[in-house]
Design a protein around this nucleic acid. Structure first.
Length: 420
RNA sequence: GUGGGAUUAGUUCAGCUGGUUAGAGCGCUAGUUUGUGGCACUAGAAAUCAUGGGUUCGAAUCCCAUAUCCCACCCCA
């Protein structure tokens, strides 16, 4: 029996990890620049939190959760997203009493039992953030500009920002009636899904892939045209805030978002390089969620970004991430006596935080050279009986071939100043 | 849950219509004599040909099932 990684999971190998480190570092940096602090939440929560938070009619909750009973008989679920856990933590830790807005970002794995395809895995990674206590729209624009600046710092270009407002529960209720009146004469001729949607969530009929091409659906009234005055003003405010900093966007009335908690602002950053799973980042406002999860009525907003999709996009755009070549010098040995000296030098170098390597396999001098060359280590020193006798070594720059004589007793000092 | 394509060394692939010891590039290990790498040359290690059945004198090759991977529907990040 040969073991294999489970369906929809992937190893991130040492050869690729530098890209992840880079993305994580840049994301954390941008968040910090906006006053966000990191939060780390548990990988699993009680199942009810997601049922309540994400919405118990959503696909994510009804058919995609990793749910099991633990040995104490509790129903546990591996988080399918980050927002619910952060909201739980916000309430549980009394963060409502902190100065508003309370802003936090996270870097998590999430789990959804789905069929895999390009840009979709069962265990995947998300960068995300949540902000509580501000109704916006200034903060709505701010979190969008976090994504915008993050993309710029990573080097990504031309990722389309689409925004929409899906209103508050009040205007959505009114709009649903309007939509029902509109569809009522036609509903009998529509697909089975749409007939169900007509009763439960007419909003979804607009997205229907089967009936979507029909003229009735195309010219259906759009929610964005029926927002209440407050929601309309909020959306206008968002646009004005985005215009003020020069972030370009497209209004896409079809962004609905499949998670139940969204209100008012919803947005997506979409690429064309990630197959049909083009949404690299999606998010929106969720003004009822905290209250719905048992906290005080608190407005909130957030987004999540698929890290795999982000890196796919970066790859497609030819972005090269810096590799961290932390090993600066290879010390090749020519004799046993030299070996002892080298071990001590390496120890001292590492104590100073200077990465170094030496032979661990009793390899020939030539093989050591080959290893150093192939590993791309930028500097090299050779120590044999001659060097031990003279007390001087040559430090070679592997790229230029240039050699610098260095006293052995000042070796670590020299390295500190010249090869890092 | 439903489709389509794929699965052969660590990796990328070749193996024609079934026929003896399944090949190559890259990578890895070692060597090309004596103290300077990346290149080149030589040698070596490495594959129950995804798994389980079936057809056949004979299967990597044909058939069936299962698994996994890739892509798509649905939904999402």
């Amino acid at each position: 029996m040969r073991f294999a990684a489970q369906k929809g999971t992937k190893d991130i190998l040492p050869a690729d990890i530098y890209k992840w480190h880079k993305a994580e570092k840049v994301f954390a940096g941008v968040c910090h620049d906006f006053g966000y602090e990191e939060i780390r939440i548990p990988t699993f929560e009680q199942t009810d939190l997601f049922a309540r938070g994400v919405g118990d009619t959503t696909d994510v909750v009804t058919k995609e959760m990793y749910t099991f009973n633990d040995k104490g008989g509790r129903s546990i679920t591996l988080r399918p997203e980050g927002t619910a856990g952060v909201v739980r933590s916000y309430i549980e830790n009394g963060m409502g009493s902190l100065p508003s807005p309370v802003r936090m970002f996270y870097n998590i794995t999430a789990f959804r039992y789905e069929n895999v395809q390009k840009g979709r895995m069962r265990e995947f990674h998300q960068f995300g953030l949540e902000a509580f206590g501000s109704e916006g729209p200034a903060i709505d624009a701010e979190i969008i500009s976090i994504v915008d600046i993050f993309f710029k710092k990573i080097g990504l270009k031309s990722i389309k920002l689409c925004i929409n407002s899906i209103g508050c529960p009040a205007c959505r209720k009114k709009y649903n009636e309007i939509l029902k009146d509109y569809f009522r004469p036609h509903v009998s001729g529509m697909c089975e899904d749409c007939r169900t949607r007509f009763e439960r969530n007419p909003l979804r009929m607009i997205d229907c892939k089967i009936d979507g091409e029909k003229e009735i659906v195309k010219s259906a009234p759009r929610l964005i045209d029926y927002l209440c005055d407050d929601c309309k003003a909020h959306f206008e405010g968002l646009k004005a805030n985005l215009d003020a900093v020069g972030i370009r966007y497209e209004i896409d009335p079809n962004i609905v978002r499949g998670l139940d908690y969204y209100t008012r602002t919803v947005f997506e950053f979409v690429s064309e390089n990630v197959g049909t799973q083009g949404t690299i980042c999606g998010g929106g406002r969720y003004d009822g969620l905290v209250e719905n999860c048992g906290g005080a009525a608190t407005p909130g907003i957030g987004f999540a970004m698929g890290v795999e999709r982000l890196l796919m996009e970066a790859e497609a755009q030819g972005i090269v991430f810096d590799k961290n070549d932390s090993v600066r010098i290879y010390i090749a040995g020519m004799s046993e006596a030299a070996g002892a000296k080298i071990a001590k030098l390496c120890y001292d170098l590492r104590l100073e935080g200077i990465g170094c390597e030496t032979d661990l396999m009793k390899r020939s001098f030539k093989a050591q050279m080959k290893y150093a060359g192939k590993s791309g280590i930028p500097f090299l020193a050779v120590i044999g009986d001659d060097e031990l006798a003279s007390g001087e070594v040559k430090v070679k720059n592997m790229a230029t071939g240039e050699e610098t004589p260095v006293r052995l007793d000042g070796f670590v000092e020299y390295c500190k100043g010249n090869i890092v």
